[in-house]
Amino acid sequence: MIEALSFGCPVILLGGGDCDLSLLRRMTAQGWPLVAADGGANRLLDTEINPAAIIGDLDSLQQRSRWESVCPVIQIEEQNTTDFEKCLYQCKAPLFVALGFTGKRFDHTLAALHVLHRYVDSRIVALVSDTDVVVVIRGALYLELPKGIRLSVYPMERVEFSGSTGLLYPLDNLVMQQGQSIGCSNSTNDNAVSIVPLDRGTYSVIVPVAEFNSMTRALIQRGQSG
């Protein structure tokens, strides 16, 4: 058993999919360590960014010997999980910000959402694309957003909501389930937004990537209070 890496601050996870390098640089400028999922490290070859670790089955990693002189390179050969999931179970942190796990192939995006659902009770993860930030959670979510911001609520399973505040279309007494009712393209009409389920159903919340800071603040506060 390989000992898990433990971090006291948010961690950036980098995959091999689409990734806005300017956003990545803004994140690393905050001092957050970066863990690359296998070939995600290849995106760093022509940059000044060095990972804190590289984790995966390493079937896509280029210039392995170079990276081994820079950081721990952890090979996990089991094929029952994706490299994204390997990073999550091999690391502990108060928040994970995952880039490069969407975009290139839709099945990879679905696999990333599957992992977020699977780890909903043990890891706090924000999945970031070039356009959106997605979180998968169980329980209530409270966040501060400007008015008029697109916010979607998508059920990962059956979930019943007791209420909401700050949304143009309230979620009061609404039951969501894939194939029946979803909550895409809602909008904020107040700065204080709350989403409160009645049960322990799991759901995703999607906001524009411009609201990344607002979402991560809410997730960090949620983790501290939980």
Rank of each mutant, 00 (worst) to 15 (best):
R43N: 10
I12T: 13
L61H: 10
Q62S: 14
G15N: 08
I49H: 08
T28D: 02
K86Y: 02
D38G: 07
V35A: 01
E68H: 05
W67E: 00
G17R: 01
A29E: 14
D18K: 15
I76R: 13
E85S: 12
Q75N: 11
L44Y: 01
L24E: 03
G15I: 04
I76H: 07
S65Q: 14
L14T: 13
D59K: 11
I49F: 00
I54C: 06
G39W: 07
E48L: 12
G15Q: 01
S22Q: 13
I76L: 15
E77D: 14
Q30K: 15
A52Q: 09
G15L: 01
P33Q: 00
T28P: 05
L58I: 07
A37K: 03
Q62M: 12
L45N: 04
P33G: 01
N42V: 11
M27F: 08
N42E: 11
Q75S: 14
G16T: 06
S69I: 00
L44G: 11
Q63M: 06
R64C: 01
A29V: 06
L61Y: 03
M27C: 12
G16A: 15
G17Q: 02
Q62W: 05
N80A: 13
T81Y: 09
I76Q: 13
G31R: 04
D57E: 09
G15M: 04
E68G: 03
I49R: 08
E77N: 04
L58F: 10
A41H: 08
N80E: 14
G16W: 02
L45E: 14
D46A: 12
N80Y: 08
L13G: 10
I12R: 11
D46L: 07
N42T: 05
C19F: 03
V73E: 09
L88N: 05
V70A: 04
T47G: 10
W32T: 10
G31S: 05
A52K: 09
E85I: 07
R64P: 04
C71S: 12
V70Q: 13
G31D: 05
L61F: 04
D83G: 13
I55K: 07
P72C: 02
W67C: 09
R66G: 07
A29R: 12
P33A: 00
N42G: 11
C71W: 12
G39A: 15
E85C: 13
G31Q: 04
L61V: 08
V35K: 02
L21P: 09
A41D: 05
A36T: 03
G17L: 05
L58K: 07
D83F: 00
L34A: 06
S65N: 11
L13T: 01
D38L: 00
W67L: 07
I55Y: 05
C87I: 07
Q79S: 08
L34V: 15
L44W: 05
A41I: 03
Q30N: 11
R43K: 15
A41K: 06
M27I: 07
A37R: 02
D46K: 10
L34T: 08
G17W: 00
M27V: 01
L13V: 08
Q30L: 14
N50T: 11
L44D: 10
Q30Y: 04
Q63D: 14
L34E: 02
P72Y: 00
S60V: 03
